[in-house]
Design a protein around this nucleic acid. Structure first.
Lengths: 215, 215
DNA sequence: GCAACACCATACGGTAGCGTACTGATGGAC
DNA sequence: GTCCATCAGTACGCTACCGTATGGTGTTGC
C-alpha cells in the first residue's frame, strides 16, 4: 500500500500536511479558524504532534501562507503562461478566475485578515504579482504603460468583485448561458480591440494565433 | 480622566451606542472582534451593562447589522436618489463607492463572516438592493432587462473589487490625477453611451441635465 | 423622603484555545 | 537486540471570553 493517500492514514504527519490543513481551515473559516487544537483533532492527533513540527501557531500560519504563495504563483501562473497571444492570456486568466472558485475563495479568506501584518505582506506580494502579470499582457497588446496599468487594475478589480459576489450572494450570479453572456460582455469590454486607443494602431495585434470563439 | 466615551460622556448607554460600537469593532477586526468584554471596556463600562441591554452576543450582532442595513439603505441610497439623470446616478454611486472608503471597508468586514447565517442574510439583502438599484439605472438608460442586469453586475463587481484592492493593497491604487484618469476610464467603459447597443437608439438619453465634467 | 425602576459593578463558573513539560511508542542504524 | 532520533499522547497552567447571579447607585414619580 502506497503511503501517499491524502485521506488515508499515514503514520507520520509532515509540515506540509499541517500547512495544507491550515489552508483548508482558512478557506472555511478565515484566519481565526487556524487553531492548533481543532486542527490536531481534525488530523487525528493531539497538540503534542503539532508542537514538535512548529514552534507556535504563527509558524503554522507562515508555513500555510508560504504554501499558498508558492502554489498561487507556480501553478496558476504557469498554467496560463504558455499562451502566446496576450489577448487569449487575459481571457484565460479571466475564465480561470471565474471558474476556479476554490482558489478565489481562499484568497478572500486570507485577505480578510487585514490586520495581521504577516498576512498583509503575503497578500500584497501575491496581488502585486497578479496585477503585474495583467499589466504585461495589456502592454503586449500595445497599450502604453500608464493605460495598461489602468486596464489591468480595472480587469483585476472586476474579477475580484465577481469572486466576492459569487461568495456572498451566489443568487446574483447567473449560471448556464446567461453566465456565458456575462463573461463575454466583460471580456469584450475589458480587452478593447483598438489597442492603445490613441495612435499605435499599426501594430499587427500579435494574433497569428486563431481566436477560438468558445465563450 | 474622563469616561472616554465616543464623543462626550453620557451617563447612560443606549442600545444604539452598543450597536455602533459593535459596527466599529467589525470594521476594525471583523465579526470576531464583536466581543462583549472588550466592547464594554472600550465604552468604559462592564459586562453588567451589556447584559442589561441585550440578551446575549447574538442580539448585539443583530442590532448592529440592523443599524448597518438601515443606514446603508436610507442614507446612501437617498443621498444619490435625487439625481434625475440615470447616467449621473451611476457616476455618483461609483464615485461615492470609491471615495467613501469607510463604508466599503465595513461591508468587506461584514461579508467576510460568510459562515454566520444571520450575517449572510443581511449581506444578501443589502447586496441585492444595491444591485437592483444599478439595474434600474441601466434600464433607465435604455438597456433591456437582461443587458441591464449584466452591466449592473459588471459595474458592481468592479467597484467591489476596487474596494478590495484599496483595502488589501493600497499601493496598487493610484492617487491624485492618475486616480481620476482611472475613474474616468471605468466610468466611460461601464456606462456605454450607445444605450442598449442594439436598436433603441431613438431614445433622447434623458439628459436634459448638464453633465458636469468634474472627474 | 422613599419606593420603584433603570442602569451598572462585582464575583463566579464554564469553555476554548495557547504553550510547556514530561512521558510513551516506533522504527531504523549498528 | 540495543540505542537513539522521531513523532505523538497526557497533563498542567494561563488567558480571553461568555453568560449568570446578585448587589449597588442614581434618578424619578409622588
Amino acid at each position: 500500500m502506497a503511503k501517499a493517500a491524502s485521506t488515508d492514514s499515514k503514520q507520520s504527519l509532515t509540515v506540509e500536511d499541517w500547512a495544507q490543513a491550515a489552508l483548508d481551515a482558512m478557506a472555511a473559516g478565515g484566519l481565526e479558524a487556524v487553531a492548533v487544537e481543532p486542527l490536531a483533532r481534525r488530523l487525528g492527533v493531539t497538540k503534542g504532534s503539532f508542537y514538535w513540527h512548529f514552534q507556535n501557531r504563527e509558524a503554522l500560519v507562515r508555513a500555510a501562507l508560504e504554501r499558498w504563495e508558492r502554489r498561487e504563483t507556480e501553478e496558476v501562473m504557469a498554467r496560463v503562461g504558455d499562451e502566446p497571444d496576450p489577448y487569449d492570456r487575459i481571457v484565460k486568466v479571466f475564465k480561470e478566475a471565474n471558474a476556479g472558485y476554490r482558489s478565489g475563495r481562499l484568497y478572500l479568506a486570507i485577505a480578510a485578515a487585514e490586520d495581521h501584518p504577516m498576512v498583509q505582506e503575503f497578500v500584497r506580494r501575491v496581488s502585486e504579482r497578479r496585477l503585474n502579470y495583467l499589466v504585461e499582457c495589456y502592454e503586449a497588446l500595445g497599450f502604453d504603460p500608464a493605460r495598461a496599468r489602468h486596464w489591468a487594475r480595472f480587469a483585476y478589480a472586476t474579477f475580484m468583485g465577481n469572486l466576492q459576489i459569487r461568495r456572498d450572494t451566489p443568487d446574483l450570479m447567473p449560471t448556464g448561458q446567461p453566465f456565458n453572456d456575462y463573461l463575454k460582455l466583460m471580456i469584450k469590454t475589458l480587452i478593447p480591440r483598438e489597442a492603445a486607443e490613441m495612435g499605435a494602431e499599426e501594430r499587427p495585434r500579435a494574433a497569428s494565433v486563431p481566436r477560438n470563439g468558445r465563450v
